[in-house]
Design a protein around this nucleic acid. Structure first.
Lengths: 148, 148
DNA sequence: TGCATGACGTTCGACATCGAACTAAATAGT
DNA sequence: ACTATTTAGTTCGATGTCGAACGTCATGCA
């Protein structure tokens, strides 16, 4: 209360809780301990094409390279991706999906779609209406920070 | 793409990124390594009154008791809170703010307010409009999971 | 009264994430 | 051509978070 607690503060608060609940629900539903970041990377590679470098992925998700290294190592250990040297740049690597990785992503997508459908029905949400302002918020948050 | 990527999926995605950016900005701005969860607990105790039990706080934030134990231990180590035995229940403890804790929270609030003002201006967001639907989403997400 | 069950908080091990420090390779500038 | 700077990825230590297992105390039930 008092001066603070502007709606924006409450909004970010709510967003934090939603993120936490959504992540928990996703991860608890996976039979094999697949984590949200793992799925996110698999999904990204399927949708936008593989062969990306770890650095590109880190930037796409706003994560540090250290974090991406960790995620990719675990995905590789599970056999969901393959890391190959970049023929054009000896410093870099390229990330490729394996058949297992694609399959596992399909599984997760199918489950998630079901769950989201239930959720959408339960909360009568106009996600398409909420999306643009949240994108604007993200963009504003994105500016001037400097990371990594 | 293909079947999924309903707006709700994109929405949760966006929420995840916003949470991450907001947390990062907050924590980077603190001079002493105060973390968002620390501030959140201090803020909660100031606003809703101290003397809560760790379990109450864990439930309020949807965190496990283990997580709350960790956060409270760090807050106590910094001298921002005091943990006292509950006179009515020998298993429980009570969390009290110290003067330093209140002061540190004030500092963080002041800074945050400034930052949020900038942010609100930059992204022309109607936070008060977005809040109700997000609360609905949170509530829906909240149902049926069972935690801890 | 006594025992089973439940609630409170802690500890432990695992994981994601960060920032800092590092190595190796590419690039720019002289 | 050489050196300085930048860029790619890794490693390390710290932290938040979780689930599982635990000890302690409270409560219900017989």
């Amino acid at each position: 209360m008092s001066t603070q607690d502007p709606a924006l503060f409450a909004l970010l608060n709510e967003i934090g809780i939603i993120e936490q609940l959504a992540r928990n629900r996703f991860e608890r539903a996976q039979p094999d301990g697949l984590r949200l970041p793992h799925f996110t990377v698999l999904n990204h590679l399927v949708r936008l094409g593989d062969g990306k470098t770890p650095g590109q992925l880190a930037r796409a998700f706003q994560l540090t390279k250290a974090t991406m290294t960790n995620t990719l190592q675990r995905l590789e250990a599970r056999g969901f991706i393959r890391l190959e040297p970049d023929p054009e740049d000896a410093r870099a690597k390229r990330v490729f999906l394996t058949a297992e990785g694609r399959a596992r992503r399909e599984e997760a997508v199918a489950f998630t779609a079901t769950n989201l459908a239930v959720l959408a029905q339960r909360a009568d949400i106009r996600a398409d209406t909420l999306l643009p302002p949240l994108r604007a918020l993200r963009t504003a948050l994105d500016r001037d920070p400097q990371r990594d």
